[in-house]
Amino acid sequence: MSLIQIRGLKKQYGGKYVLQGINMSIDAGQVVGYIGPNGAGKSTTIKIIAGITDEFEGDVSVFGMDVRKNALDIKQRIGYIPEQAALYDVLTPIEYLRFIGKLYGLADEVIGTKSWELLRLFELADKAGNRMNTYSKGMKQKVLLISGMMHNPEIIFLDEPLSGLDANAVILVKEILFQLKQSGKTIFYSSHIMDVVEKISDRIVIIDKGTVIADGSFESLQTQAHKGTLENIFTSLTGGDQQNSSTAKEFIDVLKN
């Protein structure tokens, strides 16, 4: 029995289908990298699986439960880390984590110790008393990561988790994802940073214009597309290969005028 089961998932905004029939099943302990060009429907898919959007066609189940009917039970057992630092930034991280922790029904003492410990590990402890509107994007992203994982979820969904982080933090998050995988968590994430996806994913799903165009391990994608790196595979599959080089040439030509 797979952990996440998606059958014929379609979603429309104003008459236009942004997801056009997605099928996927994900087993426990997998790390799935979900990539695609902007507007391909990555965030929308993640929002539907995490039980945030319930207007869609098709069937989606998590832990064998229907996301439409058991959204609350599912939300309790998963962590969702959204794109673009969406948090209440007039709060301090301690206050914010207390807020989130209580929404997950954690006890006060657990929240207290966990947030301090986790902030310390992310080197934010000395700024823990400052309001987050003074934080950089990377610092907010760290708080967001903590807030999505402090209730120790079984599945973690991350939407562009590395955006805005500095080089060290990227390595740290990569390592955290790796360790999470070791401890048996299931991770589903989207990213633009191809070499990270290449290194830590068991399975890579490429989506374009609302449909899955490739699905498999990095090695199998390599043999499929006869290309070296994930970046090459990605551009050849999404049809950007030829176009990118001709656009670049034109760019140079215009500069010369």
């Binding site: 995490a50 039980g51 609350l72 939300k75 969702y80 959204p82 948090l87 929404l103 997950y104 029904g105």
Partner: peptide, 13 residues
């Protein structure tokens, strides 16, 4: 509307 992004993903009915 930020509620939708912050509170909706959490288990709150």
């Amino acid at each position: 509307t930020t509620d939708n992004q912050i509170i909706l993903p959490k288990p709150v009915n």
